[in-house]
Design a protein around this nucleic acid. Structure first.
Lengths: 155, 155
DNA sequence: TTATTATTTAGAATCATTCTTAATTAGTAA
DNA sequence: TTACTAATTAAGAATGATTCTAAATAATAA
């Protein structure tokens, strides 16, 4: 059976890159932390456990490469550190984020909520959209009283 | 007649800050470059022309202060540099951006396109939205052939 | 094998941003 | 005005994330 790693390997080969042990280890960490918005430093510390000889610069280079190939998305929540998220397989667009101003939690919205808005933008601003970034800042369900309900999982 | 500067002065006083000459010079630069998405360094170089004795750290401090007071918005297009935009007077939310992957131009959408989407997010994810960031990446009207029309100005 | 190219490591270098310290300025009360 | 106090600033040092450099290593092709 073909695994996600296998498919990423093919993607790399198609672009004439190799899946070196360091790159594979990095990808494995990202797969194990799909929703964690890891920084390069975070990835580095985690990947060192399974590939101790790896260097920080290699992690940066790998993340950059994966970003170019649209396997991961590089995000910036304004704290001066870039974070890296594995893109949903086959997703055309980047998922959205909810950043809590109270506790700092970052939740994800996988569903694409922007289809209507994008139709308007393409038409009215005559702009061919390739991707988008959407982040909401506010108070998450954990931090405000009015209904301590965990939202339903992504529709 | 009350100018924008006067109103900003009041806002500062209300929060018990002073509009020092350095701060005023910085605000003037921002007013003169409303759509330019200046970095702190850009602002510094421009402000030196009208207030030569100013230091870079002061520019940073001033921009940070103005950001806290929601007079300017700090944005990050992923190039490692923060940029600062004067917020439309009275606007509750930050405006959106169109970043051209071809020529690098950054256009603005002042209109709030997210009202419907936000209603969905507030309800379904049980999240109290305070602000948002929305950026589209793609090809601007200048760079793609199909209709070299400048879009109508913000509706 | 040898030559060539891609990749990595380690640490130095860079660059944006923040911090520190001492000096300056403004505001206030006498 | 003068003295006191707090806010603000300049200058440059310090920090921290990221990128670059040089030499070593691994993979690939001939």
């Amino acid at each position: 059976m073909e695994t996600r790693i296998d498919r990423i390997k093919k993607q790399l080969h198609a672009a004439s890159y190799k899946l070196t042990p360091q790159r594979e280890a990095t990808v494995r960490i990202l797969l194990d932390h799909e929703e964690d918005h890891l920084s390069a430093e975070d990835v580095y510390l985690l990947v060192k456990d399974i590939a101790p000889e790896i260097g920080l610069a290699t992690v940066y280079r790998t993340l950059e490469l994966l970003t170019e190939l649209k396997i991961v998305d590089k995000i910036n929540f304004g704290d001066g550190v870039s974070r890296y998220d594995l893109r949903q397989e086959g997703a055309a667009h980047f998922h959205h984020h909810l950043v809590c101003l109270e506790c700092g939690a970052v939740d994800e919205i996988q569903e694409d909520l922007l289809e209507d808005v994008e139709a308007v933008v393409e038409k009215r601003w005559n702009f061919q959209i390739k991707d988008h970034r959407l982040t909401f800042h506010g108070i998450c369900w954990r931090c405000h009283d009015s209904g301590a309900d965990k939202p339903e999982k992504d529709a």
